[in-house]
Simulated scan of single mutants.
Amino acid sequence: MYPLNLPPAHILHLSSQLLWSGLSLLLLGLLAAYGLERYLNVPTLVLAHSLTLIGPSLLKIGYVLRLIAQERLKKRVGVHAIA
């Protein structure tokens, strides 16, 4: 498990990386699994379909990390709302 005792700026950076990589894996998986399915062999097709599961999982983890970082920034700064 990744230690969450990092500064909020580092957690925000990590969450951004997870969000972008999750989105790219999801789009790559959708393109390969449903757009190029007739050109792929079975193991590659299975990998492409698994990317459509891994991508949204990374998106969810990145989103939760972003919420954690924003909450910690709010506590650190003392502001009650982040615009």
Rank of each mutant, 00 (worst) to 15 (best):
H10W: 07
V46A: 13
P3H: 03
V79R: 07
I82R: 06
H49P: 01
G55N: 04
E37R: 05
Y34L: 09
K74Y: 01
I61K: 01
L19K: 03
S21K: 02
E37T: 05
L40W: 03
L27D: 07
W20I: 09
M1K: 13
L53H: 14
T52V: 10
L51T: 04
L31F: 12
G78P: 07
R38L: 11
V77I: 13
L40K: 04
L59G: 14
R66Q: 12
L12S: 11
L27N: 00
L28T: 05
L51P: 10
K60S: 12
G55A: 09
L65G: 01
L51S: 05
H49W: 09
G29C: 13
L6A: 08
E71D: 12
L65T: 09
L19N: 11
L4E: 15
M1C: 09
N41P: 14
S21F: 00
H49N: 14
L45S: 02
A9E: 15
Y39L: 10
H10K: 11
L14H: 06
L4M: 15
W20Y: 08
P56M: 12
Y39V: 10
L36C: 07
G62M: 07
L23A: 06
W20A: 07
Y63E: 01
K74D: 01
T44C: 03
I11F: 05
S24G: 06
L23V: 15
L51H: 00
N5K: 02
A33S: 15
L65N: 03
L18C: 00
L53R: 05
P7K: 10
G78K: 03
S50M: 06
V46P: 00
H10G: 10
L31K: 01
K74N: 09
V46W: 04
E37Y: 05
V42M: 02
L67N: 09
L18Q: 03
L67V: 15
P3C: 02
P56I: 09
L19C: 07
P3N: 12
L12M: 13
A48Q: 01
R38G: 05
V77Y: 06
A9F: 00
L58Y: 12
Y34K: 04
N41T: 07
M1A: 15
S16I: 00
G35L: 01
G22V: 02
P56N: 13
G29D: 10
E37A: 09
H80F: 11
Q70V: 07
L59F: 11
K74C: 02
A32Q: 06
V46M: 11
I61C: 00
L47E: 11
Y39D: 06
G29L: 04
R76E: 15
L19I: 09
A83P: 06
P3M: 02
Y2W: 12
V77N: 12
I54C: 07
L59N: 07
L73M: 15
Y63G: 08
I82E: 15
L73Y: 10
A83T: 14
Y34G: 06
A69Y: 02
L6F: 12
K75C: 05
L45Y: 07
V42T: 14
R38W: 06
Y34Q: 04
M1D: 15
P43F: 01
L30Q: 11
S16F: 03
G62A: 10
L19T: 10
G78T: 14
S15K: 01
P56Q: 10
R76T: 13
I54M: 09
G55Q: 07
R38V: 07
Q17P: 01
L19H: 08
L51R: 00
I68S: 06
A81D: 13
L73C: 03
I82T: 11
I11T: 09
A9S: 13
